[in-house]
Each structure stands twice: as structure tokens, then as C-alpha cells.
Design a protein around this nucleic acid. Sequence first.
DNA 1: GCTCATAACCGAGCGTACTCAGAAACTATT
DNA 2: AATAGTTTCTGAGTACGCTCGGTTATGAGC
Lengths: 200, 200
Amino acid sequence: MALASRPLGRRERNKQEKLDRITAAATELFAEHGVDEVTTQQIAEKADIGTGTLFLYARTKGELLLMVQNARYEAALKRGRADAAAAPNVLEAVLAVVRPIVECNRMQVENGRTYLREIVFGDPDEPHHGEAMSIVVETEEIIADVVRRDGRFGERGAPTVARLVSSVIFFSMSINVNAPLNAEEILEDIRRQLAVVLHP
Amino acid sequence: MALASRPLGRRERNKQEKLDRITAAATELFAEHGVDEVTTQQIAEKADIGTGTLFLYARTKGELLLMVQNARYEAALKRGRADAAAAPNVLEAVLAVVRPIVECNRMQVENGRTYLREIVFGDPDEPHHGEAMSIVVETEEIIADVVRRDGRFGERGAPTVARLVSSVIFFSMSINVNAPLNAEEILEDIRRQLAVVLHP
DNA sequence: GCTCATAACCGAGCGTACTCAGAAACTATT
DNA sequence: AATAGTTTCTGAGTACGCTCGGTTATGAGC
């Protein structure tokens, strides 16, 4: 360990490499075939690791999906936050925050719905679930800020409104009858409901 | 088939008998141990039928849960509708409709959450899922009626408000962070959110 | 009653997510 | 560089939901 430029041992580097391979394999297979049509065996094989090894990096298949997709939602949220500034009123500002998330979710409907299912019903003790939850929390905080800026609901009311918006988003993207809708149609569905609360 | 008093053949009677035994077995085992801790084998054994036979009556384990629980929710809804009449304002009326449903759902938290998961993510082509969906639709219709009676959101707005209420109910009962809450606490959570829309 | 077509039933078997006991790889120490 | 201790890896094995080909029960026609 003479070199300060190499603080990481081979062990750490190997681990990182495997994680990268797993992420790449899962990302590609999920995108191409959908999470339900891909087996954990296939992912392990493509990542060139043993089947047991896969579960050292993500304890369940659901965690694997969260692991692979969280970053995209984080990026989407960042975009939404930026877009919200230019909106003419609360309703449009909230929708500006929501739009990239919905678009991200609808890139592949089944994966999107599975992602939501995993957030709502998955094991809250798993690390990637925690990461997903903090994205949800951050989303609500951003929406609460937007609502606060409007002033209509006061300091205390803003988080409640944000929570309500969360409910509407999750439900609209999850329910079976909305499965055929594309991002734009989902957004229209959400707008109609939020207009009741945030009439401009 | 000389007797008009026995229009059903042995075949139909046997089927009905088996269905009854399955329902009884599943009801008891789910209630006692929770849906996740019960195997389909156990249910089949307790109902005294082959494992394959079980799946002639409910195509998936999830369907089995819906089959067993739908009736309770239907009854809860009926109670709620009756209670709504006596409420002093819209918010209280909506909560009167919602209360029995939440109480029904929280009798056993894990089963309740699984029931919701099955409604939102289950196969919409299955018969018991369809039945569950029609309970949801009916709930929204009742809430829409209550909202219409208030007049605040007009004829067109009422179904949208009802849908929004659905979102809030489902989300509040489903999310992991609310898992420790009892029926009364869930209702309080729902009330806080609905108050934003239905302020008295 | 006998025959046959059909509906209902059964349980061995399959696919797949996940586990676990032992093997292998790595690091620290001398 | 040999040893020991620890972490990481592995794939055969397990559990469980569900399927499917073969079997049995039922009832209609004669």
C-alpha cells in the first residue's frame, strides 16, 4: 500500500467492477424485454457472475429494478425543479415538476408500473428502496415549496398539498385502466384532478 | 331429473361444495397467519382438494384473496353509504363513506395492503379482480353523489373529486410509512388531506 | 342399465426467485 | 513467501406458485 494514488485495494475494485457489470446487464435486459420477462439467471449470466452473487448486490429482483432506475428519476426530478421556475401559476409549476417524472416512468409502461409497485409495497429496509423513498420525499419537498410560494395554503398546508399530489401521481401512473395511456395522457389525467385543488 | 325442486345436478352441487370449502379454508388461514405466510398447498389440503383443483376456482393466489375478501368490502361500502346521510357537511359525509372501508382494510394490515396491491397491479381480466374493481367504481359513484349534493364542484367536477379521494385513500392505506397506523390514524391522515379540497 | 362425450379433478412436474455451505480470492502479518 | 483471517463468490439446492397430461365422475342418449 505504498501508493497513495491507489487507496482502493483489488477487492474494492473487483466489487465495483462486478456492480458495474450487473447494472449494465440489468439495465439492458430490463429495457429490452421488460422486468417480468427477464430472469435473474439471465442477468447473472450476462454480467458473468454466479446466480448467488447477484443477490449480494441486490437482495431481491425488485431491488435490482430500483437500483437500475433510481438515477433516472433523480435526473428527471432535477429537470422538473428547473422547469418549475418558468411556470405562470401553481398548477403549471406543479405539472412542470411532475412532467419529467411521468415521462421517465412511461418510457416502458410495465417497468414503470413495477417501479411504483416496488416503492409502495417493497421492503423499506433495503438500500435502493430507501434511495427511491428519498426521491419521493424530495419531490414532495419541491412541490411543497412551489405551493408555499403561491401562498394559498399557508406554511402548514403546503406539505399536505404536496402529499395529495403524490397520491394523485402514483395512483394515476399505477392503475390498470390507465395502463394504455402515454405520458401526455397521464399528465392530462393528473392535471384534471389537480385543477380541483390548484385552480388558477 | 324428475324433481323440479332439484334443478341442480350433482356436478353443480359438488362444485359449489368445493368452492365453499375453499372459501372457508382460505378465509381462516389468511385471517390466522396472513396471506404471505400461507401456501396454496395448505389451503388445498385444508379444503381437502388437489393442489391443481384450487387453481380452477381462482387462477392465482391473489385472486383467491380478492375472492375471499370482496364481500366484506361490499358490506363495508353499504354501511358507509348509509352513514353518509347523517353527516353535517361534505367532508364528514365522504369520511363516513370511507371509514368502514378503512376499518375493513385494517382488520389485518398485511392482508389489507395485499388486497390493495392486487386491485392496482393484479390481472384485470380475472373475475374477482373485476368484482373488486366494481366496488371501487361504486365507491367513487357514491362519493361523487355526496360531492354533487354539496354543489361546490358542479355536475362535471364531482367524479373528478371522487377519483381524487380514491387516490388519497389507496395511497394512505398502501404506503409503507403508514403500515404501523391503525384505522383511526389512517382516517386522520385521509381527513387532513381531504380537508384541503373539501374545507367545510 | 350401458356407452360415450364432456366436465371436473388430481398431483407430479416445471420455472424461477432466492439461500446456504463450502470454495476461492484477497489482505495483513511475520 | 508462507500463514492465517476475512471477505467475496458460487451453483446446487429449496420453496412455492402454478401448469398440464392423464384420470375419474357425471349425465345424456339409447
